[in-house]
Amino acid sequence: MDGSVRTASDDGLQSYNRGNESSLVSALKTLLFFTIMMVTLPIGLYFATKAYLFEGSMKISGVVYVAWNEGTTPKGKGKHD
């Protein structure tokens, strides 16, 4: 024997702490996963719909938006003759 005295309450406390650590790690993994998804998913969906839906199947590019707004001029700007 090494002279140390272990009680049942010490074993329970250690297993309780291990349970908290594993749940903390699990919560942090979940938080990290959803944080990454919140950043990458919207950006990825934007470029995917732009490339495959609008430019791929509908043959619409960003030039259409620029051409649409080119004819409208803001009122009050420019020289009035």
Rank of each mutant, 00 (worst) to 15 (best):
L13S: 05
V66H: 06
T72V: 14
A51S: 12
D10I: 08
I43C: 15
A67F: 08
H80N: 02
A8P: 00
G12I: 12
N20M: 10
K77R: 04
D10A: 05
T49F: 11
S9P: 00
F33E: 04
G56P: 01
S61I: 12
M37A: 12
V63P: 00
S22I: 07
V25A: 13
S23D: 11
V63I: 10
L13Q: 06
E21M: 09
K29S: 08
R18T: 13
K75S: 08
T35M: 01
T73D: 08
N69K: 15
D11E: 06
F33C: 03
D10F: 03
K50M: 15
A8I: 14
F34C: 04
V66Y: 09
V66A: 07
D2R: 05
Y65G: 11
V5P: 00
K29R: 10
P42K: 09
K79T: 03
L32Y: 11
A67T: 05
G56K: 14
A48Q: 11
K75I: 07
F33T: 13
I60E: 08
Y46M: 12
V25T: 13
H80M: 03
M1N: 14
F54P: 01
Q14C: 03
Y65Q: 09
S22H: 05
S22W: 08
A48V: 13
Y16D: 06
E21P: 02
P42N: 09
P74W: 02
P74G: 02
H80P: 00
G71S: 04
G76N: 01
L24P: 07
W68L: 09
L32G: 04
T7D: 07
S4P: 01
G3L: 11
Y65S: 09
E21Y: 04
T72S: 13
N20D: 03
N17F: 07
S15W: 01
T30I: 05
D81A: 05
L53G: 09
F54R: 10
S4Q: 15
G3P: 02
T40E: 03
Y16T: 08
D2Q: 14
I43S: 13
S4A: 14
D2N: 11
N17A: 10
T30H: 05
A8M: 13
A67L: 12
F34I: 14
A48S: 13
I60N: 04
T35H: 00
G19A: 04
P42S: 05
Y65N: 13
A51R: 12
